[in-house]
Amino acid sequence: MKKTYNPSLMLSNTRIDKVGVEERVARFQTRSIKNESKKQGLHMVLNMIDLTTLEGKDTPGKVQQMCYKAQHLHDVHPGLPTVAAVCVYPSMVSIARKALGNSSVKIASVSTAFPSGQSTREIKLADTKFAVEQGADEIDMVISRGKFLAGEYSFVFDEIAAIKEACGKARLKVILETGELCTLDHVRMASDIAIHAGADFIKTSTGKIQPAATMQVTYTMLMAIKDYYDQTGIMIGMKPAGGISTAKLALHNLVMVKEILGNPWLSNEWFRFGASSLANDVLMQLMKSESGLYQSPDYFSID
């Protein structure tokens, strides 16, 4: 049966008080993560990263170097995990596929006329199918924010459902581009639309618009996931992307996931960080807690 936009199924009439959200988020930020839990948390963060390059100037060389880094985060230190995935443009998927070989690091590809999404349904579907054919395990689509803001929620819903179908076996992450939705009420509504239309993951941002993955926005999306799970028993993944560049902020995100959704979400099957510079900060923090010495960026590779 074809899914259609049905607001009555959603809790998207949920009102959100932004000041209350800010207070709640501030409280997560007072959690103190020390010693073993810090180490364990940082390992988890590394393993949840979608190492990302999404630039007009991306080249095979750049992508290959990043793919190597994805598998070899800091080889001088044994026992570190790989990142979860690399995230590239569709045109770079085959390069990444080759570079990653039989590694279990997944390939995520943006599609649907990323980042603006201002194109036709046909082109978006073709874009998606191409990325999947090239070997993408995961598709990061963008929603049509213009349509959303114009109140055409059915259009947004149907588009997501159509892309989901085009994904086949690939998992679908739906980027809301929350920085363009402006209010948390919109973020919540867009989350509900995406989830009900078939998203496997919901994702905050393209990384091209500020503000991106603020904790307020991530909190709001996690609550949407929580409500959907409570209603249906179905787990949806979450990917904050853009703006999370420090280990501390990443750990605070994990605290949120743990306290809202619980431990089952604490794996890269259900939670990802879209980031490029986060990995090195996490590595530096890890090495600091191993050695007790504050670290220098010079000792950590930048690919």
């Binding site: 073993e36 364990q40 099957e269």
Partner: peptide
């Protein structure tokens, strides 16, 4: 090739602080 799993360790709690 290293393993890409969340070392299936999903019990995460806060150490005494």
């Amino acid at each position: 090739a290293k393993k890409n799993t969340a070392n299936s360790q999903t019990e995460w709690d806060y150490a005494a602080s």
